[in-house]
């Protein structure tokens, strides 16, 4: 142990020339565009750690993002990564996964991207139980465009398009995903790095539509407009107001302005995936005539 009680490994990590997750990142694109105290970076770090934990073959991972602050994740990770159009990460990922089921396809997107403009794709992919891992960074606001109201903004919260306070009820994303049929649903805040990492590790090996929501600070816009203090103050808020309740009924996990944030793993079940259904059902119907998709063959034979 070093003088201040900090483990050697940590000293080594912070004093090293290279950040420990540098191999996972496109370091030639650093610095990133995210504000300091933003929670997106934490989430990326947790995913990188989860890959390491699980031993994922990173050649077989694809990250798909839409547009927005979180949409930029695709550009920073050193993986096959696709920065698509606003709201369309889920259908893009659907095509990618079905064309090459070997891939672990992960959508990394913000709340506005996933459930406002992309909401229809989100609910249908969950209904189909498409084998996609959906990471949703929820900061309650549109960051990149300057702090407008989102479908996740709590009632009464101030945004640049709700100057008198938000008068629309928000979505509870975990409840939405669960109701639509997701196989795995969990929520953490950007404070819960170890728990989030563990959740990501579970998600990576769980077949079907997996949804993980991460409540993160947007100190530049959401916290400032709502006088919630600095990024650190928001983290303290998470610390003091998080209630961990694994297995909670997602319907009871609404987020209210100034209220507690219920976190944990809410849903874990084994509905067959879209491809499983296809194989099973079409196989039964067509017998020997059924041929599963074999699109990549040509590419492999190059």
């Amino acid at each position: 142990m070093s003088p201040k009680g900090v483990p050697e490994a940590v000293i080594a990590a912070v004093s090293a020339d290279e950040h420990p997750i540098a191999p996972f990142l496109r370091m030639d694109r650093m610095p990133h565009i995210w504000c300091s105290t933003c929670g997106i970076g934490t989430t990326v770090k947790a995913l990188a750690s989860a890959f390491e934990k699980v031993g994922t073959d990173l050649d077989k991972v694809a990250i798909v993002s839409g547009i927005g602050c979180t949409g930029r994740v695709a550009g920073y990770v050193k993986l096959d990564s696709f920065h698509s159009t606003h709201g369309r990460s889920v259908p893009f990922a659907t095509g990618l996964k079905l064309a090459n089921p070997e891939l672990d396809v992960i959508c990394f997107s913000g709340d506005g991207d996933l459930v406002a403009i992309g909401g229809n794709h989100f609910i249908h992919a969950a209904r189909r139980n498409m084998d996609l891992k959906i990471i949703c960074v929820n900061n309650f606001i549109y960051g990149m465009t300057g702090g407008q109201v989102a479908p996740t903004t709590p009632l009464t919260a101030l945004t640049s398009t709700t100057p008198y306070g938000n008068a629309e009820p928000p979505f509870n994303l975990c409840h939405l995903a669960a109701a639509c049929g997701a196989n795995y649903v969990a929520r953490w805040t950007a404070l819960h790095v170890r728990r989030l990492t563990k959740t990501f590790a579970e998600m990576l090996v769980k077949p079907g539509f997996c949804f993980v929501e991460i409540i993160t600070p947007c100190s530049t816009l959401y916290a400032r407009k709502n006088r919630l203090g600095t990024g650190l103050d928001v983290m303290k808020y998470y610390h003091d107001n998080t209630v961990i309740e694994h297995g909670a009924d997602p319907a009871t996990t609404d987020i209210v302005f100034g209220g507690p944030i219920i976190c944990g793993k809410f849903v874990e079940r084994d509905r067959p995936t879209w491809l499983d259904y296809q194989d099973h059902y079409l196989g039964e119907k067509l017998g020997e005539k059924y041929q599963r998709g074999r699109m990549l063959q040509e590419a492999c034979e190059r």
Binding site: P91, A99, G293, M295
Partner: peptide, 29 residues
């Protein structure tokens, strides 16, 4: 299903074209 293809009816045309683009990057025509 008889020639090793995947057919999916999407929720709208936006999803359809985007899935088509995604599939191309996965190796499909």
């Amino acid at each position: 299903p008889q020639v090793g293809g995947i057919f999916i009816q999407m929720e709208d045309e936006i999803g359809s074209i985007t899935a088509v683009i995604g599939a191309a990057w996965g190796g499909a025509r």
